[in-house]
Amino acid sequence: MKDLDAIAMSSKLLQPELWVDRYSDYLYNYTIVRVNDHDLAQDIISDTFLAGLKSKDNFKGESTERTWLIAILKRKIIDYYRKSNSKKGKAEVRIQFNEDENEGDWLEERVMDQSDKTAQEVMENEELGLAILSCLDSINEKHATIFKMKTMDEIDTETICNEFNITPSNLWVIIHRARTALAECLESNWFKK
């Protein structure tokens, strides 16, 4: 019985040494749309990892490591909002009512807010970005890194080849595999749109 318990425990164990490689891009994309500041987002992610380390005994293995880290991240972001709000003083709420009936009921005021539409787009794109990153989780870590460097960071072929000590044809094979895997993974949710 003891052995079984040990196996159950080990499956619950977290691997903090791999957190940065595995999850930092995912957490970053989640954070940046919420705080909109590169340095701040990194501080929050760093805090999240440290908090995760402190409370790693609380990890019950009921969710994946990433979901668990996201839960911590959410609390960190809320903490940040609270702090920045208390610095500014009370949050200001302004609602525009037409208090005076003589003000009229202008059609222009009822037109859908254009900025709302872009907010929705931003949300959809964020979801899409996170979907892409979680799809990339399922492929070889080195391949995922190379793919991200090439595609998202737009680093040129030669630089990547030198850094990883591979030939351009190696690189294109890796890119091809990553793209095929990604297309397959995204297929069900995003390709139909």
Partner: peptide, 15 residues
């Protein structure tokens, strides 16, 4: 199509 999707998502990375 994948390229379009990737452009739309604007995934950001940490260096």
């Amino acid at each position: 199509k994948l390229t379009e999707i990737l452009n739309k998502a604007q995934v950001k990375t940490i260096s």
